[in-house]
Simulated scan of single mutants.
Amino acid sequence: MEKKIDLTASEMGYLWTVYQSLTMNICILKYYSHTLEDDEVRELNSKSLSECEKVLGELVDIFEKDGFPIPVGFSDSDVNTNAAKLYTDPFILYYQWFVHKGNLNYASIALNTIARDDVVALFSTLLTGALKLLNESRKLLLDKGLWIRSPYIPIPKKVTFVEKQSFLNGWIGEQRPLVGQEISANFYNIVSNQIGFELMNSFIQVIADGDLKRYIERGKEIASKHVNAMSKIFIDAELPVPSTWSGTHTDSRENPFSEKLILNMISYLNAQGIANYGMAISNSIRRDVSTTFSRLAAEVGKYAEDGTNLLIEKGWFESPPQASK
């Protein structure tokens, strides 16, 4: 007889989280499919939706095979596909790039700690699809002149070694130029915060007054402040600051998403933001740069905690798998 291998805690945790994110993204992509006007972006959106539904089907099969209760997640009740167009086509294209980048990172992390063949196969599918669609969205952004490039620096003339401890200095004494890793981390986090800022702005526009709207307004202020803090790093280094977008959403006041989906989406943005800052800290050698990212991460952590408390208060926080008492 074939021996049944139970799911480990890591496998349960990753599968449960992916179920939540996939069902949420399916709702969002379904709405986009009803509003997109650009044929190329619509085709990419359709591919993204098909990929999400394929992975979700494999995920449900694993849950059913193991007797794992299917999470509630998100469904058609969380989206109004007939709502008026809220986002411009260029922003939807950037959203595609942003989500596939997140799926690629998450799947690669998951594959480091899982062992069961069917779970490995599922995350391999997620990773492969994310890489393919990330590449397609990148090419489309380039073709349409929408891709934002990070700053350029000169190619080194020769290999050198650091000779002074001042290489680590930030605030006092000799301060060296930013290295490539620091520029990359700073650039990427500026772009990510700009996407978050624009999403918050659109949510504020369609949500009625209340504690959720006030929470989102606070998130918008944090994203704006963080963009300014990281832009200052580039300005002080006499490097160009990435341009911001304009016209990312329309003037529609019709909310296409449930408040439950919106607040959970912000929760996922917070988690991704903290992870991005953690990576930035590990890649920042200069003390002032790493300290800035540590401070920003702490602020997002507090904001995320308040958002989780709000989810619990509203009865929207679905409990993930947990150890026995």
Rank of each mutant, 00 (worst) to 15 (best):
N193Y: 07
K213Q: 00
L178F: 11
K220P: 01
L122D: 04
L140K: 09
K164T: 14
I207G: 08
W147H: 12
K144N: 06
T125G: 13
M200A: 01
Q165T: 05
I183D: 02
I204C: 07
V119Y: 03
I216E: 05
I216D: 02
L140W: 08
I233Y: 05
Y152P: 00
L239E: 07
S184F: 08
W147F: 15
S243I: 11
D143N: 15
S150C: 11
Y188L: 15
Q181H: 14
L111F: 08
I114G: 05
A121V: 06
D209G: 09
T160V: 01
A121N: 08
G196E: 03
L239C: 09
Q165P: 05
A208L: 13
S137K: 01
D118N: 03
D118G: 01
L127Y: 08
D117A: 12
I148Y: 00
L141Q: 06
N193M: 03
F203A: 10
V191D: 03
S243V: 09
Q165D: 10
L142S: 12
I190R: 00
V159K: 12
M200Y: 02
G170K: 06
F167H: 14
K220A: 05
W147M: 14
E217F: 10
P156D: 03
K144F: 04
L133D: 07
P242S: 11
E163I: 05
K132Q: 15
I155V: 15
F187E: 02
S184C: 06
Q175E: 01
V241I: 15
K132T: 14
M200E: 04
D236Q: 09
F197I: 15
T125D: 11
F161C: 04
F161S: 08
I216M: 07
S192P: 02
K139F: 10
G129H: 04
A208V: 14
A130P: 04
I222V: 13
L142V: 15
F197Q: 04
I216P: 03
V159E: 11
A121S: 10
Q175G: 03
K132P: 04
F234E: 07
N169G: 12
L122Y: 06
P240G: 02
S192C: 13
Y188T: 14
E217R: 10
G129W: 07
G145S: 00
P177M: 03
W171T: 11
P156E: 01
N112A: 06
G170P: 07
R218K: 13
A223G: 00
G170H: 06
L126R: 02
K232N: 14
N228F: 11
K158M: 11
L127Q: 05
N186G: 09
E238I: 05
V179I: 06
D211C: 05
P240I: 08
E198C: 04
S166W: 13
A130D: 09
P177W: 08
K139S: 14
